[in-house]
Computed example of a mutant assay.
Amino acid sequence: MAAVVRKSVPLDTPLEDAIRRFRLHGTPENQALWQVTGIRVDGDTSEAEVLRALLHAGCHAVEEKAMENGYAALAAAHDEEDRAYEAAVRARGARRRSRVGTGE
C-alpha cells in the first residue's frame, strides 16, 4: 500500500465557495466531478476527500490537455510530402477498387 502524505493547501474564499458547490449533491459541479473522477462526494464527504477528488480531476484535465497539445504538434509537423504520399495511397486504392468492380 502506498504511503499517505498530507499536504497543507491554502484556500481563498472563491476556492472555498467552489468546494461547497462540489459537495452539494445534484449541482452541475458535483455531477461533473463524479463523471470525471468516478468519486462521489456530498455534504458528508470530508473536505480532504473533496480536495483529493478535485486533484484527481485536475490531473485528468492536465493529462488530456497534454495529449491534445501532442496531437496538435503532430498535425503541425505534417508537411506537404506527407499529404502527397497520402494522396498517392488513396489514388492507388481507388484504382484497385475500380479494377475489382469491373472484374479485372
Results as ranks from 00 to 15, higher is better:
E63S: 14
E86C: 02
V9W: 00
R40S: 09
Q31F: 06
F22Y: 13
A3E: 06
A94P: 11
E63V: 06
I39H: 13
L24C: 09
A48H: 01
A77I: 01
R99G: 07
Q31L: 13
A91K: 12
L51A: 04
R97E: 08
T37Y: 08
V9N: 00
E29R: 12
A53T: 01
V4W: 06
T27K: 00
T45G: 03
R6A: 09
A48F: 05
D42E: 07
K65A: 09
S46N: 03
P14M: 04
L33C: 03
A53P: 13
Y71C: 06
Q35V: 05
V89H: 14
R90S: 11
V4Y: 08
G70V: 05
K7N: 00
R20P: 02
E81K: 10
R40D: 04
Y71P: 01
L51H: 01
R92Q: 10
N69W: 12
H60S: 13
M1D: 09
I39K: 14
I39A: 03
L33W: 06
S8W: 02
T13V: 06
K65L: 14
V9P: 02
E47G: 13
D44N: 09
R52G: 04
E16D: 08
V62S: 15
E64G: 11
V41S: 09
P14I: 13
L33V: 05
V62F: 08
L51N: 04
A18D: 11
H56E: 14
E29A: 13
L11T: 00
R21A: 08
H56G: 06
A53V: 07
A2F: 07
A2I: 10
V4Q: 04
P14G: 05
G58Q: 08
A75C: 03
